[in-house]
Structure formats: structure tokens, C-alpha cells
Design a protein around this nucleic acid. Sequence first.
DNA 1: GCAAATTTGTTCGTATGTATT
DNA 2: CAATACATACGAACAAATTTG
Lengths: 269, 269
Amino acid sequence: MTEPMYRRIAEDLRARIESGAIPQGTKLPTETELRDRYDGAARNTVRDAIKLLASRGLVETRPGRGTFTTRHVDPFVTILTAVRPPAADEPGLGGGEGEDAFAEIGQQGRTTSASGPQVSVQQAPDDVAARLQIPPEAQVVCRRRELVVDGTPLSLRTEYYPFDFVTAGATDLVQAGSLPGGATSYLEQRLGLVQVGYQERILVRPPAKDEAKFLEITDNGRVAVIVRTRYQAARRPFWVTVTVLPAERVELVINSGTVPDDHTAPVVA
Amino acid sequence: MTEPMYRRIAEDLRARIESGAIPQGTKLPTETELRDRYDGAARNTVRDAIKLLASRGLVETRPGRGTFTTRHVDPFVTILTAVRPPAADEPGLGGGEGEDAFAEIGQQGRTTSASGPQVSVQQAPDDVAARLQIPPEAQVVCRRRELVVDGTPLSLRTEYYPFDFVTAGATDLVQAGSLPGGATSYLEQRLGLVQVGYQERILVRPPAKDEAKFLEITDNGRVAVIVRTRYQAARRPFWVTVTVLPAERVELVINSGTVPDDHTAPVVA
DNA sequence: GCAAATTTGTTCGTATGTATT
DNA sequence: CAATACATACGAACAAATTTG
């Protein structure tokens, strides 16, 4: 009934970290030091304890440097949908306006930098094809951007449009620059497409290799994926946005009706 | 530049699993068999490979039984907020009506069973106190339920109300049974509280021990937590609901405006 | 820029404990 | 109870990343 040693070691370290005895962002003793400290446990046993803590996100190890307690940054608060009480003159759709439809606010006073969109034409990924209701082999235009806030990578966002849109006249979609006036108004002017609704689906999964690298998350981290499908008249989808976020560093907020104005403070736990 | 052996083994197994060569839910070869198969690598090395796959959710190991590929159940689709185009006679709030405000739909034809609420009075957790704008030492009524769908645990939901509500007349809050007509109408009848808006905050974190046990998620899994704060007149919070879900087995959906009716199909990736 | 020292990462072998069949 | 299979633990050696002198 006794707990295994590596768990006892992990538990002891966890208590020290959470009590503040080992402050955030500081270096733990080295593995050999910990080995001596814990009654001569083998280094591999100490390593197992550290792996357990790492899988719970309490510490991070860096080759050649040491093991560090994770710095708990305030999660980025992302407002998904802000539905206000409908006024008579409003379409009442809420959100979804302009290029920056997911408003990453709650970060006033923070330095934001976005990479210019990386544009490509490729076969649609299966899920995107399904969302756009196009054949799996159809071509789509991808416009991908990386967003960094205060030096911390925040999101990988890819917009998907049917390639038909380009041949139909929306030729700027395949240009690398920003779209004049934003994608929403561009698509309306060029193709007469007007958004009447959208759906957001949120899921959590382990990161792909490139996602882990850019978002600086470890092997056992997770990403939150937001798939936004926009619909035009006759409930036809015409535009899919996939946003990949570091799940443990973000908080998604949905407001509905009348709520207080200050929705910036993250919930503590 | 060569990858470590345990990663190569993991990569090979991953490919076999994802190609379908090892079907879902089947048992992998035993560790000793894998050791022989991979050029006599040590058993510990094979175990490292398996741990890597386990941390990505591809396999699960059970002591004494073996290592099994995870069965990919269709994620439960949970509709968070369904905002319809506002009609003239509608408050336009969307969602938030009745006891079952987070409608776990998309599971038609599935057997649902909820535990009767477990009721307790306790000091408010820090985050709940902050949401309810009450002092940290204030008492709250907790009503906790466990929801199981088709034999698979789906959610742990706890409702928090200020204890003041009980002394003010809402005495049934501390009764274990269901509230007559749902909590929303009960609070309105007894205390005149009317909801004018709500906020949902979604975050992802490692599970607490009891959450991991009930939701049947492994050490390196994650839970998604939905904190819903309901507001009454003057933007005063009066009710907080915390829902804990197995992050990898759910998909959250938000509809806004006019969208197709069939929002049941999960996105594949 | 290089070499040495430090620290974590990978791999092996072995032994024993615990859960399941 | 016996056999099987995963879990824990130890010790050792070398590799790779990083810092320091």
C-alpha cells in the first residue's frame, strides 16, 4: 500500500513548489543532488519523479541546463463571441465582423506582432473539405498567420477558401499581402458573399510537431483548436478558419446578454 | 542526427496504428515480444516508446493485461450557446434557460444517466468567490452531479449559490432532490432573481485526482473546464456553474446566426 | 573559438513487485 | 497457486546540449 518512491519524491517536490518554497521559474536541484537528498534513490528514479511533474505541467526540463518550475503566466483571454442584447437596428449576429473576428482582447498594453500571411494553394484537408462541403480532392487557398503577444507565441491561424473564389474574381486571395479592407468586405465586394451565421467548434488534442515548436509547448502539452465555419445565404459554408492555441495558456470567453464590462481577469483555477 | 531508438520504435508503432495495421482497441505485442522484434532493444527502451505513445493518447497500458490502442469514440458534441437570429418577441439571450443550460445534445439515441445532486455547504473556492463577488470566506451551496452517457462518464458539474439564498427563502437549494421546475424558475419564484446575461469561460488543465478517476482519463490527460457565471439585474452575479469534461473526448460548439441544422458531426481533426 | 565542466538524455542489463488471467 | 505482463527500482555507461573558463 506504500506509494512507489518516484511518486513520493514527486509529491514532496510538488508540495515544495506549490507552497512557494521553490518559487516560479527557478531551477530545481540537479538530478544527482536530488538523488542524494532522497535517501540515495537512483538517478533514474528521480528522473521518473520529474517526468511525472513535467506531465502535469509543474516543471520543464532543458537539456544541459536543468529542471525549472514553470512560470505561471496569466492566461490570454480570448473573447470568442460577444452577443449583446439585440437592438432594433442590429443584425444581432455578434462577432464575426472584419478580418480579426476572434478578437484577442484583454491584452491591452501588450505588444502584438503578426506574421504576414503565408499563402498557399493545396488540396483541402479532410475536415476542411467536409466543413466547406466541397469534394475531398478540391483545391483550397490557405492563408496562414502566426501571432505573437509580448514575445510569447499565441496562435497559428489558417484561413481556408475554396479555390473557385480565385477564378471567380477574388484574385487577391492568393496574394501574400493583407486583403484591402479585410477578407469579409473583400469577399462581399468581389463575390457578393454575405455572412449570415457561423459556427465555432472547440476541441483539444496533442500538438503536431510544427505546432509544438512554434507555440513552445512540450511533448505532453495540448493545443486547443477552434474551427470557425462561416455561412452565407442558404446556409452554404464559404470560409473556414482554424486557430491553434496553446491550451494551457489561454482562456476562452463567451459573453451572452448583459454582463459586466471587465471580462479580462482570468479565473484562477 | 539519428533519432533515438525509443522514438524510432514509437514512430513505427504510430504508423502501424494510424494505418490501421493495428486496429483500434486491440492489444499490442507484449513488451518482451516488441523487444525481440526491434533488433533486441532493451525492454526499458520499448517501454519508453510506449510511454511516448501513451502521452499522445494513442495507447493505454493496463498492468497485468497489456498495452491497447485507444478506441476513438466519437467526441461528445456539446452545444454551448445557440444564438438564433433575434426575433422581435425574443429576449435574444440564447441558451441559459432551464436547469440544463449546457444542452448536451448531439447524443440522440444515447442512454444518459445523471447522479442525483450531491448537496453540500462549504466555504467558496477562491475562483467561485471571485466570480460571485462574495468574500473568500463566505459560504456557498454546492450541488454536484455526475453525468454518464452510454456507460462513458461525460461530466462533473457543480452549481454554486451564495448561502444567503437559503436564509433568504430558497430553502430547497440545500435539499438533495431536484428543484421543482428547475433552478432558474425556482430562484425567480422564491427570490425574484432573473437572469439577464451570462459568461462562459473555457480553460484546459490537468485533472485533479477525483476528476481523473471519475472521467477515466490517464495521468497525462486533460480536462476542459467550463465556468458559467450568470448575471441578474445590475450585472450582479448570482450563480456559478463549473463543468469538468474529459478534454479529449468532447467537442464544444457555438452557433451564431443562421447555420445548418445538423451540427452533430464532429470535425475529424 | 575551443576545451572542460556541468547537466540532462538515451540505452542497456538485471532484479523484484504487483495486477490479471 | 502458477504463469503472464506491466510497474518499479537500481546501477552503469555514454551521448548531447549548455555553460563556463
